[in-house]
Design a protein around this nucleic acid. Structure first.
Length: 581
DNA sequence: GCCGTTTTCGGCCCGACTGTTTTCAGTCG
């Protein structure tokens, strides 16, 4: 079982216990453990082997024993009992909006409902409205939510690449409302998580009503879920939920901090406040009940003031996941302005849509000093992969472009296929003729762990390979990454000075933040590359930078934030080191 | 069930909105 599967088991156990009416803190303990396991960055099986399960935050004696059994036998006592007592279909009811543990229990115990289909039938037959605490309105709402659930065939979160442009479009509308002073996205969007559940908006305005009106009347709104004086929720036409919160500008800082989350980060911050005898909410910092009163409230118009008032260093939004950001000094994270070049892009020589010169000029316009052209190689026929002969012709064109342009240097590389047996698509002498070599695995992604890992390690240890492109091969929401021994791969890359790519395309974002962070911990180097196939494709760089920031990366960790001379001399040094091995 | 420069027991973040209620429970984030 991998980390996310273990986390899933604990979460569904927590759901089951909650339906059974278990004390909420026990339920929360399982959820917290699950979250921390999902955020681990290390394979939980390794920790088990090393007897270090209890080093995971939120895992004590009891949960450690259960994890041990789970990883060894695939289950444990409490899980078996919970599953025997509560049918899976009952737990599934929680996925319907506005149906929580208490209602699930009510419908199950009173009406014998054990599936979403049965819930729909019961609602249609009018059986829900007579239950205690229920009424006609609640019944109609639940029926509508069941239908909404069925429409959204897959309950998947939106990829960031979809959510980000959509949110910017909505934001532009909100900013235009008269008397709006500030407006921003918040939530997982502001944290730049790779997938987004709800779109969160925060607006500072003297008057809330006009902006609320505009929000619920936006053309992309399909349905109003809730509408209060300071908060509204809508369902968008693409099925996503969007929330708007309007704040007094004097309380912007606390509001933005609260609404950015993550929930785990906020819980942690509020605990810190509590230990100082303070209480934090989205409006202000106040003295806890029973404490000596403050001179009223502490209002924070800026977010940084919230952290300062609580004696905590400012934490950039991308790091607010409760993954140790309160415990360690935060280095100066890389920014988009630090990027000096782009080490993966395609041209009309293979499957790109623009010439070498067009790509070079586009990169120059974005302030870059160098680019690496990385067209596909021969065995990837579908993408018009290059033969050695065509590669030589391309070199001439690149030389000509370099002669014409000043201020940017075009390097010749290739996105070289790693074949099924781990060998590369070009001979060593052809590879040696390139300025840099990017290796990629596009085939056999479903190979078993040992086999795929061996191929990857062969590519990493290959003397001519500089970069591994999109290492896991995942496509967000479509295809999981390959099953890899990540610890072995990340270690080998660090040892051989092989650069691992963060592919900035929002459908990939590969390496992901957790693996990139682990790579850095092990001393490895990264590149953030767009994999552009046309000039505008260069504009996705900021997504990759966000992943790197979430991985705590600094300029030192990211080679395309280095001047070209430094990158090339580091590479030469690396070649010498490899020769010694 | 976890956790500890206030604690090995007694805490555990905090508030908006809705619908069913005559003061609050449930859900959500």
């Amino acid at each position: 079982m991998n980390n996310s599967q273990v986390a899933q088991v604990l979460n569904s156990l927590a759901d089951t216990l909650e339906i059974q009416g278990e004390v909420i803190y026990k339920v929360l303990a399982y959820r917290r453990a699950a979250e921390n396991i999902a955020n681990l960055g290390r394979d939980i099986n390794e920790l088990q082997c090393a007897g270090q399960l209890r080093s995971i935050p939120g895992v004590g004696q009891a949960i450690a024993e259960k994890l041990d059994a789970l990883l060894t036998t695939g289950t444990f006592d409490l899980l078996d009992r919970a599953r025997a007592e509560v049918p899976a279909g009952v737990v599934e009811l929680l996925r319907v909006q506005d149906v929580g543990p208490r209602k699930v229990r009510l419908f199950w115990k009173e009406l014998g409902v054990t599936s979403i289909a049965e819930l729909e039938t019961a609602a249609r037959e009018g059986k829900l409205k007579n239950l205690p605490g229920m009424g006609a309105k609640s019944e109609a709402k639940i029926l509508a939510n069941v239908e909404a659930f069925k429409r959204r065939a897959s309950q998947t979160r939106m990829p960031l690449g979809l959510a980000f442009p959509l949110s910017q479009a909505i934001l532009r509308e909100l900013i235009r409302v008269p008397n709006v002073l500030r407006a921003t996205t918040a939530g997982s969007l502001r944290r730049m998580q790779e997938t987004i559940g709800d779109l969160d908006f925060l607006v500072a305005a003297e008057e809330a009503a006009p902006v609320m009106e505009r929000f619920v009347a936006l053309p992309m709104v399909a349905e109003i879920i809730a509408r209060g004086p300071t908060k509204s929720s809508v369902r968008l036409q693409n099925g996503a939920q969007a929330d708007l919160r309007v704040l007094d500008p004097k309380r912007w800082g606390t509001g933005l901090q609260y609404f950015t989350g993550s929930q785990a980060h906020n819980v942690h911050l509020r605990e810190i406040a509590q230990k100082k005898g303070l209480s934090l909410n989205e409006y202000a910092i106040t003295r806890e009940k029973g404490g000596t009163p403050l001179h009223g409230e502490i209002l924070c118009a800026e977010e940084a003031e919230v952290y300062r008032a609580l004696g905590v260093p400012y934490i950039p939004p991308e790091l607010r996941q409760d993954r140790g950001e309160f415990d360690r000094e935060i280095p100066p994270l890389i920014t988009a302005d630090d990027i000096l070049g782009d080490l993966q892009m395609h041209t009309t020589w293979s499957d790109g849509k623009a010439s070498v010169e067009e790509m070079a000029r586009a990169a120059q316009a974005r302030g870059y000093r160098y680019i690496l052209i990385t067209d596909h190689t021969q065995s990837l026929g579908v993408a018009g992969g290059l033969t050695p002969e065509r590669l030589r012709q391309q070199r001439q064109e690149i030389d000509a472009v370099n002669a014409r342009l000043t201020g940017i240097r075009v390097l010749q590389g290739a996105e070289v296929e790693v074949r099924a047996d781990g060998s590369l698509d070009f001979s060593d002498d052809v590879l040696a003729s390139l300025d840099m070599v990017v290796a990629a695995l596009h085939t056999g992604l479903r190979q078993e762990r040992e086999k795929f890992t061996a191929r990857m390690l062969a590519a990493i240890r290959h003397p001519h390979v500089d970069v591994i492109a999109h290492p896991s091969g995942r496509l967000i929401g479509e295809r999981d990454g390959a099953d890899l021994d990540w610890e072995a791969v990340l270690r080998a890359a660090a040892e051989t000075r092989t650069i691992l790519e963060i592919n900035a395309h929002p459908s990939r974002l590969d390496l992901d933040d957790l693996h990139a962070r682990r790579a850095i911990e092990l001393g490895g180097k990264l590149t953030i590359s767009t994999d552009a196939h046309e000039p505008d494709g260069l504009d996705v760089m900021f997504y990759g930078v966000a992943v790197a920031r979430r991985a705590w990366a600094t300029v030192e960790d990211v080679v395309n934030a280095w001047p070209l001379e430094r990158l090339l001399s580091w590479r030469a040094e690396r070649g010498a080191k490899r020769d010694e091995r």
